[in-house]
Design a protein around this nucleic acid. Sequence first.
DNA 1: CTGAAAGCGCTTACAG
DNA 2: CTGAAAGCGCTTACAG
Lengths: 354, 354
Amino acid sequence: MTMDEGTRREKNSTREKAQQEETAIKKMTIADVAEALGVSKTTVSRVISGKGRIGSETKKRVLRYIEEHDYKPNVIAKGLAQNKTFNIGLIMPGNHNFVDSSFFQKCMLGISEAAAAADYDMIVSMIRDDDLTQLERLVQNHKVDGIILSRTLVEDAPAAYLKQHHVPFVVIGTTPSQDVIQIDHDHREACRELTSILLLKGLRRVALIGGSRGLVITHTRLRGYLDALEAQGVPADSSLISLDADNEPMLERMVGEFVKKGAECILCMDDSICSKVLKVLKKSRISVPEDMRVASFYNSPLLENNLPAVTSLHFDAAALGTVTCRTLLDLLDGRDVPGRTLLRYEVVLKESTK
Amino acid sequence: MTMDEGTRREKNSTREKAQQEETAIKKMTIADVAEALGVSKTTVSRVISGKGRIGSETKKRVLRYIEEHDYKPNVIAKGLAQNKTFNIGLIMPGNHNFVDSSFFQKCMLGISEAAAAADYDMIVSMIRDDDLTQLERLVQNHKVDGIILSRTLVEDAPAAYLKQHHVPFVVIGTTPSQDVIQIDHDHREACRELTSILLLKGLRRVALIGGSRGLVITHTRLRGYLDALEAQGVPADSSLISLDADNEPMLERMVGEFVKKGAECILCMDDSICSKVLKVLKKSRISVPEDMRVASFYNSPLLENNLPAVTSLHFDAAALGTVTCRTLLDLLDGRDVPGRTLLRYEVVLKESTK
DNA sequence: CTGAAAGCGCTTACAG
DNA sequence: CTGAAAGCGCTTACAG
């Protein structure tokens, strides 16, 4: 017996690895803590959760023990008992062609940090097109307590699904549905202001080129552009507006068209479009800003190193993520949340509209 | 009593919403299934898991009931019983400055789909610099069964932590540690081949400009470049090699230096650097490819619309994600996995090196 | 082939 | 203020 103990000790001291493994494999449970302290699991549970009255002396002892032994409650077990997961789901567009990755990455960072601050984790699920399979899996498997939907579509099948199944969710972006909690930058106002600034520079023929009509954002930005024209008394010219323009051949044609119609400036709804427009202009030996002004409704690393630097709108993606996540967490906690939150933007004037 | 029942029925039929809510709130459990079929929970559990012998008739009945009533087992409960979470963790760099978001997004897509195929979900955790807090949270909270580390650093604190705590993990990228399971594109060979091609075009003074020495990838790429020089018998000229060059002023100086030293071509280790180099060249009125050839060891949307189109290496990010995730899942299932997996690449020759 | 029972690690009425 | 016990929804020896 004594020998046996000696042997074991020796193992422990020489083979640090084995000892660590033991610590790693068999984690301490609430029962261990309770036993060690001669109290009930109930008591330990209560001091950890802070619910219920506990003698201050008992509380101190438990807290100290937990601290000293670095006990961490098993969140999964806690979740099962409380019917929670402490996970939020982030649904991202899987087909990356028309999203700005850098924006989403920053946004994810914001969400991730806000979640972590509340001891939540972020499960991200990429869905392709209209395939709801992954979303269904996520909710049917009870993997999340609530969901953040990014990229709001005009026809929002994911939102409809979540609504039908009573899964708490918020949306990054703007949707026409009144009953959906939405967080977004004030794109309409931002686009109005940028357009106004250009008009005030004396530019009269400001063309607009935009992305998919299937995205709500496209309509919002168009709205802002039209707001500005109206306010300045400049009649909208439909031959200077082109949506659903995402491929290069089409952009090439449109730019040619705009030039013919006497456009003085081309407003691009996003940087991917703008980048292509700049390429087309370069090919056509139309110089910016001398022969044509260019601005983007959005700024990203895509245009960062362009010469001339491109005037654009700036939105704080990380902040959007943070606010969105906090809103969802508030919602999950049963707190009142605003149906709609609009975040500020900045207009960044550069050489491309000089 | 009868009236009471009647009332309840009426509620159900008129207020569809309430009924749906009920369905959503109180999910069917394995006990419900067992009771409805007059079998034990054990039996139901066994047919679902496929473990143990079950009468084919019983099996059929259970399967049919499950199908018809769309019963979905609670993965959380299953996890608690099996000490698993069916989540994998993806650790991403939070400071986005020197990563290509688009590459990571595609990679995430690959991981996400491979995970989903095995009914796993992906928790992504962004960590800033050397802050291990989030990683610790993830493992201490039992939130994941295994972890994918992206962006391998020379000093890899996350890997060390996971090793110490015996958490199964794999790494996207290459590390010197023998005992770490790593999946990567063959950057060394890719860079060797690209450099060779340039040398075979007769270019003798090929300069190299790279990112942080803190990243393993920087050294790997440098290695490939040197391999090529050596194979062609071209002596390496240290005045044509510059690492840790990530800010514009420094790049501006380096490019000037290279020109002075008679460089005929500038190889950039990534597109962010390349984009800045192109800007500097444009500013300095050095035209590409006439006065200076340019190539990037990497291709992304950042250079997509550049004129002239930039020669570069192409890596399939989604495939990298898929393979990485499968490797981790294999590891979790106790299967044998290769210590190192290298994926193929492509060289894409364009006008910038004509 | 099938089931009763204990267990995974927590929480939470209920009772004292 | 504290605890015994039941429960969250599964799995899995163990016994038949």
